[in-house]
Lab assay of single mutants.
Amino acid sequence: HHHHHGSGALAALHAEGPLAGLPVTRSDARVLIFNEWEERKKSDPWLRLDMSDKAIFRRYPHLR
């Protein structure tokens, strides 16, 4: 159930192989992290948004 927010940013994801479903670039990863943060913020208003490279690598090590 993907609803768009204002920016309408869509992340490019790997379609197949071992990385299927994972973001292709760091900016794609940022979109995913932001979208998930927006969702989680509803139940956790104090949740901090962390889109640093460090956060991205921790989450998606293949982007190193």
Score class of each variant (00 low, 15 high):
His1Ile: 13
His1Gln: 11
His1Val: 12
His2Lys: 10
His2Glu: 10
His2Phe: 13
His3Phe: 14
His4Leu: 11
His4Asn: 09
His5Ile: 15
His5Arg: 14
His5Pro: 13
Gly6Trp: 15
Gly6Asp: 11
Gly6Cys: 14
Gly6His: 13
Ser7Cys: 13
Ser7Ile: 14
Ser7Lys: 13
Gly8Lys: 08
Gly8Phe: 10
Ala9Tyr: 14
Ala9Arg: 13
Leu10Ser: 15
Ala11Trp: 03
Ala12His: 14
Ala12Phe: 12
Leu13Asp: 03
Leu13Gln: 04
His14Ile: 08
His14Ala: 03
Glu16Ala: 08
Glu16Cys: 15
Gly17Asp: 03
Gly17His: 03
Gly17Gln: 02
Gly17Thr: 02
Pro18Ser: 07
Ala20Trp: 07
Ala20Lys: 15
Ala20Cys: 08
Gly21Cys: 06
Gly21Glu: 03
Leu22Met: 08
Pro23Trp: 00
Pro23Asp: 00
Val24Arg: 11
Val24Trp: 04
Thr25Phe: 04
Thr25Tyr: 04
Thr25Gly: 08
Ser27Gly: 13
Ser27His: 15
Arg30Gln: 06
Arg30Phe: 05
Val31Leu: 14
Val31Ser: 07
Val31Lys: 11
Val31Thr: 09
Leu32Phe: 05
Leu32Ile: 13
Ile33Val: 06
Ile33Asp: 01
Phe34Tyr: 14
Asn35Pro: 00
Asn35Leu: 15
Glu39Tyr: 08
Glu39Val: 11
Arg40Val: 05
Lys41Cys: 08
Lys41Met: 08
Lys42Asn: 08
Ser43Arg: 11
Pro45Gly: 07
Pro45Gln: 09
Trp46Thr: 15
Trp46Ile: 07
Trp46Asn: 14
Leu47Asn: 06
Leu49Pro: 05
Asp50Tyr: 04
Met51Thr: 08
Asp53Val: 09
Asp53Thr: 08
Asp53Gly: 05
Lys54Gly: 09
Lys54Cys: 11
Ala55Trp: 04
Ala55Ile: 08
Phe57Ser: 07
Phe57Asn: 09
Phe57Tyr: 12
Phe57His: 07
Arg58Asn: 13
Arg59Ile: 10
Arg59Tyr: 05
Arg59Asn: 05
Tyr60His: 01
Tyr60Ile: 00
Tyr60Asn: 00
His62Tyr: 11
His62Ile: 00
Leu63Thr: 01
Leu63Gly: 00
Leu63Val: 01
Arg64Gly: 08
Arg64Glu: 09
